[in-house]
């Protein structure tokens, strides 16, 4: 056999260069297709960048003229051009953290129920119902909370805590019992992030290998010991991720909160007092913002919300992905 000359091709390390070598013989269809999927994929980073840049530019005048006072001032007074975000920022954090605290044990319980303990016949229906809860639009939660939850708080819960339990002097429960309050916002947020945390937690739990559970059962563990010693430790990072994803949701939730939090620029010191969140501040004021500085200050508020949620979500996704890759 006559030795043919040996063409050296595809010796370069990068696939990108390898595929560009082939481009000469690629059909038009392949090129169009490659262009379409690559361009679509690039839209996502481009969009994020654009969101950040657009908001940063619009917020710049306010940042320039107000500086750190944007974050430290407790007064929001449009006519006097005082735009302090501190009450709204703290209100956002307080309502979200409160909701997370209430929702986590319940959501984890539901996740454990569906993935470990429920009788087989109940698993699918319960999972479907929880998914259904997640599909209810925010504005419907808001409507329900406004018409049902808030009056119940005002009529029954608040007087009970204040008078029957005689806790009226505790600062946490101070203030008149209006109904619309930090507590109402936290409760509706709790209900809203419950199904979300439960769904992510369920996936994380189901990713724990069967062999781990069987090993525990084979050692004579009870059902609960199996969950505690074999399932939960393996799922820990993912469960924390689920919590933080829920927190991200709560931070950016707008409509339901706007409808029940009372929208008052007060530092969130009492559960019974109205408060504000950044998202509801935007929802209420953006459409009728007066003057460029007001708009710019609201843009700065959006920027703060954006930064907080990106950090929180990025961290959570990283955690969830880490557990899923352990498999």
């Amino acid at each position: 056999m006559a030795a043919p000359p040996i063409p050296s091709f595809a010796t370069d390390q990068s696939r990108a260069r390898e595929s560009s070598r082939q481009r000469g013989v690629q059909s038009i269809g392949d090129r169009l297709y490659g262009g379409w999927i690559t361009a679509s994929a690039l839209v996502i980073p481009a969009l994020l960048l654009l969101v950040a840049v657009v908001i940063a530019i619009s917020a710049w005048p306010a940042v320039q003229s107000l500086g750190w006072r944007l974050l430290t001032d407790t007064t929001w007074d449009v006519p006097h051009a005082r735009f302090g975000l501190l009450p709204a920022l703290l209100g956002t954090l307080a309502s979200s953290v409160l909701a997370l605290t209430l929702a986590t044990p319940l959501a984890f319980g539901a996740a454990i129920f569906v993935s470990e303990l429920a009788p087989p016949r109940l698993r699918r229906p319960v999972a479907l119902l929880i998914d259904g809860l997640a599909a209810i639009p925010s504005v419907v939660y808001g409507l329900w909370a406004l018409v049902v939850l808030v009056p119940w708080l005002r009529r029954d819960v608040m007087p009970f805590v204040r008078d029957t339990l005689a806790l009226g002097n505790v600062p946490l429960f101070a203030g008149p019992a209006y109904g619309p309050s930090l507590l109402a916002a936290a409760l509706v947020l709790t209900i809203m992030i419950l199904p979300f945390i439960a769904a992510v937690a369920r996936e994380v739990l189901q990713a724990v290998p069967r062999s781990q559970r069987e090993a525990a059962l084979a050692l004579g563990a009870t059902r609960w010991e199996m969950i505690r010693d074999a399932v939960l430790p393996n799922a820990r990072a993912g469960l924390v991720g689920a919590m933080i994803l829920g927190l991200g949701r709560a931070l950016g939730e707008t409509m339901a909160v706007t409808m029940v939090i009372g929208n008052a620029h007060l530092l969130p010191t009492s559960l019974f007092q109205p408060a504000y969140t950044i998202a509801s501040l935007l929802a209420n004021q953006f459409a009728e913002a007066s003057g460029p500085l007001h708009v710019s200050a609201l843009m700065a508020a959006a920027g703060v919300l954006l930064a907080v949620t990106i950090v929180v979500n990025g961290f959570a996704r990283w955690l969830v992905r880490r557990t899923e890759q352990q498999r």
Binding site: P4, I6, P7, S8, F9, A10, T11, R21, G24
Partner: peptide, 15 residues
Amino acid sequence: VSGAVHLDGRDVYAH
């Protein structure tokens, strides 16, 4: 890949 595959004398890996 490196090397050659000839099909009836023609290299399928030719440029």
